[in-house]
Amino acid sequence: MSTGRPTARPPHATPTAGPAIEAHGLRKTYGKVTVLDGVDLRVETGNVFSLLGPNGAGKTTTVRILATLTAADAGRARVAGHDVTADRGRVRRAISLTGQFAAVDEKQTGEENLRMMARLSGLSRAASRRRAAELLERFDLTAAGRRLALTYSGGMRRRLDLAAGLVGDPQVVFLDEPTTGLDPRSRQELWQVVRDLADRGTTVFLTTQYLDEADRLADRVAVMDAGRMVAEGTAAQLKAQVGGHRLDVVFTDRAAYARHEQRAVHRSPESLTLGLPTDGTALEVRALLDDLDPERRDVSRFSLHTTTLDDVFLSLTRTGTASRQEPTHV
């Protein structure tokens, strides 16, 4: 498969059937640090895909490789039907990237920023003016259009940034932690923008540290940890993978807590509480309690919760933290 395959598709056709993003075995090291250790992923056209992971998991590097800004050491990727290394120009014309740092000039007005981006993406002067006005309207920035971006609030600046990414009507939009640092209201507004994009058939690739964000927006979620994909599926599938429900058990003493700590997906040493995955049926909950505490003296109370993506996330990315915690309780 490593031979350069000729594409059957004409260069600018919208690839309706194939995946919008496809990557195989992406690797990247910086010096001695392995940032990506063989990443595979596939995002269908028109989907909202969310890449979840703790800081340093490799999310931004993945996005930068897919957006042609960084070259992978190994592996290959196609975005919007084009190879990210061999066909970089075509990929760039089909995508937009909104990164963690605002990519607008503070000392230009919102309108000037958008017109500049429109000119750079190949629109004529008149078309650029129209496009800027259109985007300001769509992102509720018309009133602020003639003010320097310097005077914008965090949420406004992020919207302008996003608008600037959309001047060229990209087929695939990459959003790298789009809501980090925003207040709850601005986050809601940004979520709406992502939903609108999805309604228009745009493929959205979104990285986030917030699980509720992925849960609300994404058709599919992938979890990344230490440069590897550790899970992929719909939010519901991922939750089902760790049981669908979580039984929180409060132990009577620290020794009992420590005995069962290994199997938990959620831990709270202060309150001696462990969360365990379960399907939530009476049969299984009863069996689980019997298994944990056959003598009926270790468990004082329990409660049952629907699994959240947080549980999924913690159970999947816990390896590092669990091994660090172990010795203290032996």
């Binding site: 930068r64 957006a67 042609t68 800004l69 760039r92 937009s96 990237l97």
Partner: peptide
């Protein structure tokens, strides 16, 4: 240093 250079590059400038 800022993000704008990535934006320009992703516009193939």
């Amino acid at each position: 240093k800022g993000g704008i250079i990535d934006r320009f590059r992703s516009l193939d400038v």
